[in-house]
Design a protein around this nucleic acid. Sequence first.
DNA 1: ACCTGAACACCGTTCAAGT
DNA 2: ACCTGAACACCGTTCAAGT
Lengths: 188, 188
Amino acid sequence: MAQVRPMRADARRNYERLLKVAAEAFAEHGENASLDDIAKRAGVGSGTLYRHFPNRQALLEAAYVDRIEAIATRAGEIAKALPPGEALVEWLHELCVGTIQVRGMKVLLGSAVTDGSSAAVTACGTSMKEAASRLVEAAQREGTLRADVEPIEVLRLAHGIAIASELANGQGAYIRRYLSLLTEGLRP
Amino acid sequence: MAQVRPMRADARRNYERLLKVAAEAFAEHGENASLDDIAKRAGVGSGTLYRHFPNRQALLEAAYVDRIEAIATRAGEIAKALPPGEALVEWLHELCVGTIQVRGMKVLLGSAVTDGSSAAVTACGTSMKEAASRLVEAAQREGTLRADVEPIEVLRLAHGIAIASELANGQGAYIRRYLSLLTEGLRP
DNA sequence: ACCTGAACACCGTTCAAGT
DNA sequence: ACCTGAACACCGTTCAAGT
């Protein structure tokens, strides 16, 4: 893979400062935060930002991969603590909270479950799909989840639920409600 | 209300040209289409665009109100043709198709069902809510829809379903599936 | 009353010059 | 090998001058 030679010390320092500042900026100003501003706040020239991250999407991903990996990791922990059906719902809830609260992450999580998503987001997309598969398949074996839905579909639907909750009010107060409407259905 | 005096002939002409061009531009380039470009294509100075539409959201709304009103109107037509439960689902399907296919409309329909939405989108938001209320309440009386969901919640959930379908593939192939997963629920 | 378009500020992106 | 920052292009927004 890439990066056989280690980075020069100053390059590594800049890279990490950029990531840290970018995560803050995206969280504060949303996915369209000014790249120039991020470079300035990190104390580097704008060219340096482009050297490390060729476009906004690349920076966005790099800034949040660890967060997304953390969510994926949570799947395993929750699976040990709860029965399959509940575990799935609980994990989806945490996923939705992350989607709404960390403003920059919404786009990223969205593109992670898109059909023709870029190679850049494939990495964390794969982690999410694996995490989802584990919980989904367990719930299906248990018989608390329909057998005809695929893991990636559950991720997409959860993303939709996050959006719906966001429309209801800024923070995630409605996530549990809308998530349970999805699992139980709109029929009486 | 506004607009007591009729517009001057040239103003009216410009206004309508701007709307027509804007609808095309938003459909083609999405909600972030260049306003300057819209003004140029409409053959007016950029100041004229701002005179008629103080910001992007205002233009976006003006360009698509009639489309949204048309969707709202469809509710009544569908209600006459189908039993309540089916009518609701059918209408939500048409709504989702519009949300996805007409690129500029997504943001607008979203903000129409947001809690603190601007006064600008209140008008078409109201039409949508009325249309939804009619179908939702009929389905609830019929007993095919849970009694504890409100019309605006159904609109928000439908918006979420549209997003989920969009993630699945560009066009609306998955809308019916995800809509039925919502109505029937994820449990077996 | 309305229109025009120059002017300004801001941002993304590139690249020659520097270490 | 990497960094800097000036330079360019583009866009949103304002406003003085014009009809």
